[in-house]
Amino acid sequence: METTNNKLKFLLIPLIFIFAVIFLLSLSVGDINTPLKTVFKVLTGNGDALSRSVIIQIRLPRFLAAAAVGSMLAIAGLIMQTIFRNPLVDPYFLGISSAAELGISVAIMLGVSSTLFGISIMSIIAFSFSVILIFGIVKIARLKNFLESKIAIVLLGIAISYMLSAVNNFLIFYKKDIFIKSTFWALKGFNTANISEFLFAVPFLVAGLIYILFNAKKMNIYLSSDLTAHSLGINLSKFVPLMLAVSALIAAASVMIAGSISFIGLFTPHIGRLIAGEERKKLTIVTLLLGATLLPAFDLISRTVLPSQEIPINIITALIGAPFFIYLFFRSKNAQH
């Protein structure tokens, strides 16, 4: 008989072990040869200058950024899937990535190229656009009391993101520069990840995690139905937009760091569900850890498949994610019958 009696610590031990393996691999594999022994030396404060700068300044920030973005997307996806009670929803559902893309085009048009605290201003503008979009959607939805119907929010999000893409396409077709540069920006990934970006991401990740853990019980109840949630004192017209805003903020911060990365936010919560069940507290922790393991693993693949060069991370996540998505689709179809 199926039970949900999986103690969290028994789940976490193997997950943490795999995470540690990916961590060490990420630090030791690369063009410059640094065996595990060297990695340990460097981590304990020894080692030669070249290995130090490669491991500490190039590989470590890259791993950290990928782990942060992976867990952010996983958590953001989990929230979205919970709020829409739909397993096929991802963190970009409300058009965050198209807002970010428009932000990039605008930044290119304004000729912005400098950095602020080690983060490119271009990325900061992209992030601001996503945030404006989120609050715009929530604001409009509240004006018309749309929050009762989640379909209305979705339609609103889709309509607005189409509008943003249209403006973006206009800019792209208007100037050659934007065409070339925005194409490159979409390939960003973790190629140039630095520690400032990771530090920018951490507050969103931590705040989001704390918020979810405090609201885990509410999310559990919300899963049953709007009516039950309401009858148990959950104010849906506050809970739903707040959750959406939290998810969208986390997703927007992740887009700022690595561009939009497909499928991670969609399928990580599913793997989490297979491991931890539906209970939100356990599921959140497991999903977070999975995201922090999977994306660095994919990133490792993206920079080792071809010697000395990188494949855009989206190609890797999509190649692995798409078949999973199809499997999921058929499974949920079958489950309905």
């Binding site: 190039i58 000395s308 060069q309």
Partner: peptide, 28 residues
Amino acid sequence: LKGDWPIVNSEYIIKENPDTIILLYAST
């Protein structure tokens, strides 16, 4: 490297140690 526009990581460039760097579209 493969492709017309390969994405390269810093490690490879450090390893190859070029004598000259030319920037075409971005960066200072």
